[in-house]
């Protein structure tokens, strides 16, 4: 798929099976994608879900924004991979992917990012943050940055942690049950990705779903 000069392509994909996007951006175009993986009620499908997004910036001054959130439980298994290629200079890309993993869920994030030799003055940011709610949950994360230009700003970070026990106790001490506190902290963790969903109704629905599935 090609996004024409100056155009904006904006999409939210919720539980899209086998998402596999290839996007080429022309000069000054913008791409904003949010990928959401939430447990859908009633299904017991345990086959791994794979999200793959490839974006090539072919023209100058492009903006690519890729966001993702996943709440995985049971034996859920979601792998997300992004491939962002800055072929020409003056472009920007932002990536923020968050996974929350409960039970024996497994998640993976692979982020490949290339800045070509002539793609000077490119700005990129890639962040992957993960929250493990159980000892058996697993997360694999692998940022892969290949930078061939010398005048660029490229930052990346990956962290995996647990829910803050001291925050849970603080909330309980104010009379909030552990279950509700749990939900509030998970929702807070995912909030900055949810805020990237442009449609208010859809965002509300997703928040409700998260509230419902967090235990």
């Amino acid at each position: 798929m090609r996004v024409s000069k100056g155009d904006i392509f904006e999409r939210v994909y919720v539980n899209e099976p086998g998402l596999d996007l290839h996007i080429e951006q022309e000069e000054g175009s913008q791409v904003r994608i949010v990928v959401v993986n939430l447990p859908s009620s009633g299904t017991s499908d345990t086959s791994p879900t794979r999200n793959a997004i490839t974006v090539e910036q072919l023209g100058k001054g492009c903006l690519t924004e890729l966001y993702g959130l996943a709440y995985l439980r049971g034996k859920d298994h979601v792998e997300t991979e992004t491939h962002v290629f800055h072929r020409v200079g003056g472009g920007e890309s932002k990536q923020l992917f968050k996974f929350v993993l409960a039970d024996q869920a497994e998640g993976a994030f692979y982020g490949e990012l290339q800045i070509a030799k002539d793609a000077q003055q490119t700005r990129t940011e890639q962040v992957n943050r993960n929250l493990l709610l159980s000892r058996e949950a697993q997360m694999r994360t692998r940022p892969q940055l290949e930078i061939y230009a010398d005048d660029v700003q490229a930052s990346h970070g990956a962290t995996t942690g647990q829910l803050d026990e001291s925050a849970l106790f603080y909330m309980q001490q104010r009379g909030i049950s552990r279950e509700v506190a749990y939900r509030m902290l998970v929702a807070a963790f995912l909030k900055d990705v949810l805020e990237k969903v442009p449609d208010d109704d859809q965002r509300e629905r997703l928040m409700d779903t998260i509230d419902r599935v967090v235990e």
Partner: peptide, 8 residues
């Protein structure tokens, strides 16, 4: 030491 709770 009051606890900070980002996002809430």
């Amino acid at each position: 030491y009051p606890v900070e709770i980002p996002g809430v």
